[in-house]
């Protein structure tokens, strides 16, 4: 096994004559927090779907957690966690039922489920809300719970698709504490976001423009390269050249 969580080389995805993802290449190290940035319509979601085993690339090579995206989709699915921009827990199930459901889907045994569940509930301080319907929880807690549930099976990599949409800054900060905690445990974090302050929290990040990766480096290095003070400026400098309109 290499020390790379994701290896991606010349990955392409075409829909008809539209090239959604145009020969992107990047590596993500194990335990790294990797930011995957880009304007709407730049091809982030398409790229992410290929890496998650939801669609086949048109060409190029990629391995996720050491498994090939063409041939080993099932193995990839077992080794990744996923949390989407849409809130991904069941609102009319209780906290406990959601944990048991997702744990069950990932094939955790009853004893593992119990242990993990207790640990998770304690870390989030949700003890009292255990039997409440998730729909009744405030959005911030739902989001944190969704993240914790997404990594309940100790995946190698967790994919976060705009996980903090619509959440206030304080909760976002708390959310990132959870992300750091997970990264400390060796879980690789692959995150897309529109918040540039969040981009600063990433170890390394790439910015997609029109299906290509136009920049890839640490936040500090990117700012230096584009002689910008903030990530915002870096992003605008790159995104301004985009030809595709946002959808």
């Amino acid at each position: 096994m290499t020390d790379k969580a994701i290896v991606c080389k010349d990955l392409c995805k075409q829909f008809g004559d539209f090239t959604a993802v145009n020969r992107i290449s990047f590596d993500v190290n194990k335990g790294e927090i990797y930011g995957f940035l880009g304007a709407n319509g730049a091809g982030k979601t398409t790229a992410m779907r290929m890496l998650c085993g939801l669609s086949y690339p048109t060409s190029g090579e990629a391995t996720v957690a050491g498994y090939n995206v063409y041939r080993q989709q099932e193995a990839i699915k077992r080794n990744i966690g996923y949390m989407s921009q849409k809130f991904s827990l069941y609102e009319n199930l209780t906290v406990r039922e959601n944990i048991r459901f997702y744990g069950g889907v990932y094939g955790l045994s009853d004893s593992q489920l119990k242990e993990k569940g207790v640990e998770l509930i304690e870390r989030l301080g949700l003890g009292k809300e255990m039997n409440k319907l998730v729909g009744e929880l405030p959005l911030g807690w739902k989001q944190k719970l969704a993240f914790s549930v997404a990594i309940i099976h100790q995946p190698t990599i967790v994919f976060l698709d705009e996980p903090t949409g619509g959440v206030d800054p304080v909760t976002r900060r708390q959310f990132w504490d959870l992300i750091y905690h997970a990264a400390d445990q060796g879980i690789t974090i692959f995150v897309t976001t529109h918040y540039m302050d969040e981009a600063e929290y990433c170890h390394r990040l790439s910015i997609m423009v029109d299906g290509r990766i136009d920049a890839l480096d640490t936040p500090a290095e990117l700012k230096r390269k584009y002689s910008a003070r903030t990530m915002d400026e870096v992003f605008y400098a790159l995104a301004r050249g985009a030809k595709r309109s946002a959808d």
């Binding site: 996923y82 991904s88 069941y90 997404a150």
Partner: peptide
């Protein structure tokens, strides 16, 4: 609609 389908499809289920 809720987005849970995506999560299910990404899962080994």
């Amino acid at each position: 609609e809720m987005g849970t389908m995506e999560v299910l499809l990404v899962s080994p289920f």
